[in-house]
Amino acid sequence: MFALMSNFVFVPALTYGSQLALGALGITLVFGVLRFANFAHGDLMAFGTMGVVLITYWLQAHGIGIDPLPTALLALPFGIALAVGASLLIDRTVYRFYRKRRAAPVILVVASVGVMYVLNGLTRFVIGAEDQRFFDGARFLISAGDFKDLTGLDEGVTIKLTQALTVVVAVLMVAALFWFLQKTRTGKAMRAYSDNEDLALLSGISPDRVVAVTWIIAAVLATVAGTLYGLDKSFKPFVYFQLILPMFAAAIVGGIGQPIGAIIGAYVVAFSEVMLTYAYKRALMYIGPEGWGPEGLMQILSTEYKFAISFLILVFVLLVRPTGIFRGKVI
């Protein structure tokens, strides 16, 4: 029973949640500091990951690797550099103009839609729309068979290397981010700026610096999230665009502008997607008496509506507690 649930619910949801969390963190930071919902975040992820994929191919072709870990980890810094460069360039050419004019947030949102289209096109232009697989290295940490042998249980638990990697890297990234925000001077400046822009300016914080640092962090998070996601599944530009929807939901559910909220929100979204659509038949069979089993599949909501769930939660949260779980920005 426990093994069953952890295999099909806990491990996948934790992995997916971690991938979403890194993305949602980027969205929420941009929102906190620059005060707009960045629709281009998914495509920034794709753009950065594209860099990682291309470098990975190059490394693989030259036989450079760090077996059993995937080569992509070596290529990651290059992808990050690409994404950072791109987002700084975009900020310089697009967003700064509106920021200086103190344009309404909606204008920035629309501008981000424009950026989304451009990045979307550029990524496919360079790498094409095809599916790319760049994973190498070991596949499993524990496979279902090993687990059964090890514990003597009926149900297996598998943990893939990429899953473990995702969670570990996500935890490291989040820890580093929080350390940065809480302990360093620049991090504090960012929080102050996010909290009260005018006051922060008065106390001598350079807005350009804060904004630049925000973009750098957002790009790093986006590339790491995109790469982890691509390693775990595969890289396809179209999917990355689709990912912004659950990421937005996660950011708002957690309380937008609140880094900790984005993380919690991401897990809420991931776990409810899996748990609400899970068929509890087999799980109930383990709890219930011997030989007893429910008639139906005991599914709360059919999987067709999986993707609607994040939005149902979103709508629910907006109705009941519009600021999200952790009080986010004022609405």
């Binding site: 707009f36 919902a37 309404a104 947030p105 909606v106 949102v109 929807l245 937005f248 939901a249 708002i252 937008i256 994040s310 939005f311 979103l314 709508v315 907006l318 519009p322 004022v330 609405i331």
Partner: peptide, 12 residues
């Protein structure tokens, strides 16, 4: 809701 919240909510 605030303007860009509305955007995300309606998108969803």
């Amino acid at each position: 809701l605030r303007s860009d919240y509305l955007a995300i909510a309606t998108l969803g």
